[in-house]
Design a protein around this nucleic acid. Sequence first.
DNA 1: TTAATTGAAACTGCTCTGGTTACAATTGTG
DNA 2: CACAATTGTAACCAGAGCAGTTTCAATTAA
Lengths: 141, 141
Amino acid sequence: MALHIMGFLASRRGEALTSDVLAGTYGTSPVVLRRVLAKLQKAGLVETRRGVGGGSVLARSAGSINLRQVFEAVAEDTRLMPAFSDDCSGKIAPILADFVNELFADAEEALLAKLESVTVAGMDRQVRHRIVSALQCAPHE
Amino acid sequence: MALHIMGFLASRRGEALTSDVLAGTYGTSPVVLRRVLAKLQKAGLVETRRGVGGGSVLARSAGSINLRQVFEAVAEDTRLMPAFSDDCSGKIAPILADFVNELFADAEEALLAKLESVTVAGMDRQVRHRIVSALQCAPHE
DNA sequence: TTAATTGAAACTGCTCTGGTTACAATTGTG
DNA sequence: CACAATTGTAACCAGAGCAGTTTCAATTAA
């Protein structure tokens, strides 16, 4: 959903979009969307103005924002796997938990690196490209 | 939790452990543990015998089981990010959704590759090593 | 036959997420 | 200034998913 927002804002360069419009394109309510928007603001990825004619725009150029930043802005604790609580009284369990936690941190870093390699601008480009392709295949629809 | 089970079974080579014992080491109930055990069975990673003297053992050598297999056995649908439903009536949204889904599949594959590089035997070795180290640092505790 | 053990269903309770409603705060416009 | 368009935010609701418990049937060794 955050990616949808960023993609849409990128596709309308500089134009301020209201949460109502954005919500319409995603099929959800403006309030829900604003909750996500609030996190993106706090991370400095979008800027928002209130009042008449208000709305949101990207705070920086779409080329300088990568999807890892978007992901981390929305998922406050990036840990996909919940950390073990080592309340098992045995001696072995906590050490195994440590190992697993480190391993997951590694694996997760691999995932984030993948996301980091794609910018919002890149995403926008690819989506545009696909739209063009789709239209070429079915031009009369 | 599944990793805990596999690690524990590996550390007791061939010895059949009851769900009661396993649950004790993890700090949960036998029933919950058996639910996980059932998935590991279905994936052919452990074998279980009922009745007196029953319990579970690894179905193959710990060196031939990697953590990706364990992960996939437990998480029936491996998708970390839920797939978009493209019920948004617009033309752009579904295409963006497709792109995001593919990207996430890529990122997830990076994570799984990391898990695939570690075997249960390797995990067991490393944990043992750490235990030895811990004992050397505090031998009189 | 009895005791130990897994298998599985049914139910509870918790948390998380998305959704809705409602209202206050901000801001451009006439 | 008054009004309408927006965002910000809190409160509450509903459904999904997960861990936990209880309970009972099925299996198996002694």
